[in-house]
Design a protein around this nucleic acid. Structure first.
Lengths: 208, 208
DNA sequence: CAGTGTGAACCTTTTCACAGCA
DNA sequence: TGCTGTGAAAAGGTTCACACTG
């Protein structure tokens, strides 16, 4: 909306963009405070600022990437990170043939240098982009280096101490959701055309 | 659990792994049918099969990737896809210097050949891994080729006709969640050490 | 008068608690 | 005896509807 030069937006406008109802938008925003103007709506810039502040997006966060294969490189180049205040301040790999190589103005470093880098560059978040087999090892290095937030892209379940936050991105989950609806579409078609019935649970969910 | 050779698992065991409570596991699984054995638990293999079937994961889905930069390559190589029955049957790029190049036993093709490929290879899902600026163009190509499910990795909001399912993966959302908790940890520390108070909404959410 | 902010009503999800079965 | 499957109760989330205000 900023890009389109809109100065204000109503809860109805936000609701339509988000695919929800306007009462929910108003109720949700009311938890942040009273940032709307009755009869007018919400000031777009101000609302962005307030939401960003509440979510902690007004400050920058330094991140390192472990594992510089295709995924690591893709993440290092991903424009979306910088835009949200996530700075990639280090790339690490165990493969000594990669160490020293430049990726996007950044030099690939050895795992051995991780601890010092975390301390000196004030790293808050570690991103694991290694193959599944070495993900736990990479994670252990991060924990040993004192990183308290870990984001795992490897298709592996990791163990961390209780004081470390761990999240996992499974790139295939969204594909599974799409295929679930695709399957349901086909199943519904076969109902319409006289095929077999759907089970109750399969026909329960809504919204593609 | 299969990998660890466990033949059966209780709702309590599943609950612990998933970080939820056992009643929820039982209630949820009960919607699929009665697949547990009282006094014993659930047969691991059988439960996997039943869940897979319900989610449509017992059949394979053919996918194409549009945009063969780092992200496209990473997705093409991602082991997690094949394991869940998603087969990458085509890689497409507009950059003619890339066309013909081999990536993981697959040859990069031109956008112009997309329509035929979709028809001949029975493609169900299109994956967009282009830069943000060309994502809409790629998406239009997919729609024109008759693809009804689109997964967008580009940091751009896309428009599709009503009969096409569109989902978006924002790689930075998980980072935002981590930084939100990181921020909250710091804020809580400063409360403990006599700093300023948290707002009600910031202290409401739970679980790292 | 257009559109927010919010109690109250309504609906959904989660949890409890226990009968009933292998 | 141990654990599922499930009504009933509790908690949580969404929507309605309208008083209120810039």
């Amino acid at each position: 909306m900023t890009e389109r030069g809109m100065a204000t937006v109503s809860s109805e406008g936000l609701a339509e963009s988000a695919g929800v109802n306007s009462a929910k938008v108003r109720k949700d925003l009311s938890y942040l405070g009273s940032y709307g103007t009755r009869g007018v709506g919400y000031d777009v810039e101000y609302l962005i600022y307030q939401i960003s502040r509440e979510l902690g997006l007004t400050q920058d966060w330094n991140c390192v990437i472990l594992g510089v294969g295709n995924l690591g490189r893709a993440l290092a180049n991903y424009r979306g990170f910088g835009a949200r205040g996530f700075r990639i301040v280090g790339l690490f790999d165990t493969d000594s043939s990669k160490v020293g190589e430049k990726v996007d103005a950044q030099t690939i470093e050895n795992f051995a240098d991780l601890k010092r880098a975390v301390r000196e560059r004030n790293v808050a978040i570690g991103i694991i982009a290694t193959p599944a087999a070495s993900a736990q090892e990479a994670c252990d290095h991060l924990v040993a280096a004192g990183v308290k937030s870990v984001l795992n892209f490897a298709p592996a379940v990791l163990q961390v101490p209780g004081d470390v936050s761990l999240r996992k991105v499974d790139l295939s989950i969204e594909l599974q959701i799409l295929s679930f609806y695709e399957q349901r579409k086909t199943a519904l078609d076969s109902v319409r055309h006289g095929g077999k019935r759907l089970t109750a649970s399969a026909s329960k969910s809504t919204r593609p």
